[in-house]
Design a protein around this nucleic acid. Structure first.
Length: 257
DNA sequence: ATGACAAGCTTCGCTTGA
């Protein structure tokens, strides 16, 4: 039996519970990393996930951000802070029962290149690179998953020219992504589908999804030591056909046990 | 140049997202 690891920016875990349950019926993931839960911890629906066979760890806050990991096996060595300089709930890591370390991130968007939020995004990514450098020494088998708020390359953007000057494609942010790759982390979907145009996010406005105008910003990166276990990868965009979709689709990999 | 959708809080309007 293979292990399914998935990541999904749900844009409010409480609103999206029906879609999450529907998707888990079609693909019973063993590990599911959520982003933008937008839910304070006392209101996280841990009981509902437990009823479906998942233990969960979650670090949320009111209105913004929030990350969680759902797992069918116990999670160990949970860490929830990227760095004391970044207190918002965007980072959660744990040792999984499937023999690898899982790091779940919700990267800052950055708003615009001139914004203080963009400077924050750059500093956050610099801290992430250093944190991963340290984690990989301790946990060579590691998966870094989540909403990266960056499209790695032009083929991950429906109209690269329209996104010139965007915080999602800026060369400085892509440089941080290259630093993650230099640590031996491999974009699983792109590794298996080098020429495929596929997206994981569509703007709610302008009927972007209907027009196929999306970006691939939700990623699963596997370390060199974990990559040999990669069997399949995909993006579950079909789940967005159900009522009240998130603006992101789940991304997933199947790993050998 | 702007807004368009969606969600949550600041709740019948505003902020943020990407």
């Amino acid at each position: 039996m293979s292990i399914t690891l998935a990541s999904w920016n749900v844009n409010s875990v409480r609103v999206r519970m029906p879609q999450i349950e529907t998707w888990l019926e079609s693909r019973p993931a063993d590990l599911l990393a959520l982003q933008e839960t937008k839910t304070p911890d006392p209101l996280f629906p841990a009981v509902d996930f437990h009823a479906r066979g998942f233990t969960s760890v979650y670090r949320g806050q009111a209105a913004y951000n929030g990350v969680a990991i759902l797992a069918r096996e116990p999670l160990d060595r949970v860490e929830d802070e990227l760095d004391p300089a970044f207190p918002d709930r965007r980072f959660l890591s744990a040792q999984t029962g499937s023999g690898f370390h899982l790091v779940n991130i919700y990267a800052p968007n950055g708003e615009s290149l001139e914004s203080d939020k963009f400077r924050y995004k750059c500093a956050w990514y610099a801290a992430l690179v250093e944190r991963l450098r340290g984690l990989l020494r301790i946990h060579p088998k590691l998966a870094l998953v989540g909403d990266f708020n960056l499209a790695p390359a032009g083929c991950d953007v429906y109209d690269p020219e329209a996104f010139e000057g965007s915080v999602l494609t800026d060369p400085r942010i892509r440089c941080y992504f290259a630093e993650l790759e230099a640590l031996g982390l491999v974009d699983a979907y792109r590794y298996q589908h080098p020429d495929q145009t596929a997206f994981s996010w569509w703007d709610y406005r302008r009927g972007a999804a209907r027009r196929g105008e999306g970006l691939r910003i939700d990623l699963i990166l596997l370390s060199e030591a974990l990559l040999p276990r990669l069997r399949q990868s995909g993006i579950a965009e079909e789940i967005r056909s159900h009522p009240r979709p998130s603006d992101h689709a789940p991304v997933w990999v199947e790993l050998d046990p």
